[in-house]
Amino acid sequence: MQLITLSILFIFLTIGMYAIMSFIYVRYYNALLVPILTTTTAIIIVLVLFNVPYETYMVGGKWIDALLGPAVVSLSIPLYKQRKLLKQYLYPILGGVLVGSMVGMISGVLFAKLIGFSKEIVLTILPKSITTPIAMEITSGLGGIPTLATVFVIIAGLTGVLFGQPLFKLFKIDTALGRGIGLGVASHAIGTSKAIEYGEQEASMSSVAMTLSALIGSFLGPLISWLFY
């Protein structure tokens, strides 16, 4: 009985907090207010204040977490609907995603290894530019720490949101294709939410790039891990 009460409590806490934070984000549109960041922060503050361990929160949280799988399956729909655009820009998309994913994984692994972090940590930073559920899967497959991987994924997402605009200006990235692919490959879903601000073409390119890089990353991750260890 107590378990059911706890489950319902934490499910409502998560959904309620998300609803409030989404409202705030829409109201005061600001890159720093992305609901995934603000909701997570708010829930952590509540849990720490009431001295609730993460494992207890997950009694309810796991029910929301269970929907992540079918949500990823659902990404198949925009990918299928955009197949014409995909076909038209097949080589630019594939080239950008492949080279970008390699640069992202190799540079992260290389820097972390040079500074002397353990293999477990180095392999945890590897999939940082890939959307959370798949980054966690890749990390756990390689022997990293999936929950820690989400921290790097969020930092990678926010980097794209905060530095995208100045970077595009600096390096003369002036096409919808370039901006969309860059944000999708480097900053996954959080980057895609930024791409929507630029326009529909950027948004579709970014979601295609995010999905493709998750797909390519699932193969590339083990390969790069094997190259370094």
Binding site: Y18, I36, I43, Y54, Y57, M58, D65, L68, A71, M136
Partner: peptide, 9 residues
């Protein structure tokens, strides 16, 4: 984004 939250917490 909602489905990410239990993991990110």
């Amino acid at each position: 984004p909602l489905f990410f939250i239990p993991a990110t917490v």
